[in-house]
Design a protein around this nucleic acid. Structure first.
Length: 278
DNA sequence: CAACTAGCCTGCAGGC
DNA sequence: TGCCTGCAGGCTAGTT
């Protein structure tokens, strides 16, 4: 499940490999992967002939600027999406959904087992948020100057919902998913079911700090291994092994040896240490 | 408006 | 061995 660090890792890889490469064509193997436009033929037609200028990231969304003012190419990996930079002769993976062809027999291949991943072509002179509608409600990026304690406190103020649920809400903080939300809550010693309104300002300060730390650590390591994440070159990250609580139900806490517990919040698993988190 | 839930989808683990 | 159930979870749409 790619979260901000994995998406950022992919972005950096794409910026190393795909810049100034001219799109010569493409093939859509699963139509509903293309969220816009409705016609997959139009999608291929519109991106063809352009070069990739720069890849940007907003939350977990990837956006590439197309040359000659040809708009943008947008990608969301959702849970199992992978972007792989391959030679075009590479045998097709079972879950190949979209292929984008470049010169020198190179290919950007979108492989996605669970088919939730999406791609968009955003026409020029159109607000990207109007096409990639998820962008419209996106909160500040945790690494932006905008993501201050005051900003986070305002988002959590008077909210009677669990902090874990709030952290997964992309309009509260952009880029967190289930892994890093659990890890951040462990690191600041807060139970996932704690209501937002019950958090002290000091705890929100800590929370902001650990969110940034946890994400930075993972980016530095090239993304997580405790998912089937692969970077653009098909390599797994190496954040793995150091998860404090995520997916460690029944195992001893790395700090106090108490048994890691799991509860469901908002239909999602939350892992925590009942001793270290209060 | 806030909070919550179902649904989308495939593969895999565990029970019997 | 094979069938069944539950689980994995980002995001949207719909309900309370």
């Amino acid at each position: 499940m790619p979260e901000l660090p994995e998406v950022e890792t992919v972005r950096r890889g794409l910026n190393q490999l795909t810049l100034n490469q001219n799109i010569t064509g493409g093939d859509v193997l699963l139509n509903r992967t293309i969220a816009y436009p409705f016609s997959v033929d139009e999608f291929i037609h519109e991106i063809k002939g352009s070069a990739i200028m720069t890849w940007h990231r907003r939350g977990k969304y990837l956006l590439s600027e197309l040359s000659s003012s040809a708009g943008y190419l947008g990608v969301h990996l959702r849970m199992t999406g992978q972007l792989l930079w391959l030679h075009r002769d590479e045998p097709l993976h079972k879950h190949t959904r979209v292929r984008i062809f470049f010169g020198d027999q190179q290919e950007l291949r979108f492989v996605d087992q669970r088919t939730f991943g999406q791609m968009w072509w955003v026409p020029p002179k159109v607000a990207v948020e109007s096409v990639m509608t998820g962008l419209a409600k996106l909160a500040a990026d945790p690494f932006s100057p905008e993501f201050t304690v005051e900003y986070l406190a305002a988002k959590l103020q008077n909210r009677r919902r669990p902090i874990k649920t709030a952290l997964l809400d992309q309009s509260v903080v952009a880029g967190l998913g289930n892994i890093y939300a659990d890890e951040a809550l462990f690191k600041c010693g807060v139970l996932p079911e704690t209501l937002c309104t019950d958090l002290q300002l000091k705890q929100i300060q800590q929370l902001r700090q650990v969110i940034i730390e946890v994400l930075e650590t993972s980016i530095a390591a090239g993304g997580t291994t405790f998912s089937n994440f692969l970077n653009v070159k098909g390599i797994n990250g190496n954040y793995g092994g150091v998860a404090w609580v995520y997916n460690r139900t029944g195992e001893p806490c790395r700090v106090c040896s108490n048994v890691i517990q799991r509860i469901k919040l908002g239909g999602r698993s939350s892992h925590f240490c009942p001793q270290c988190q209060r």
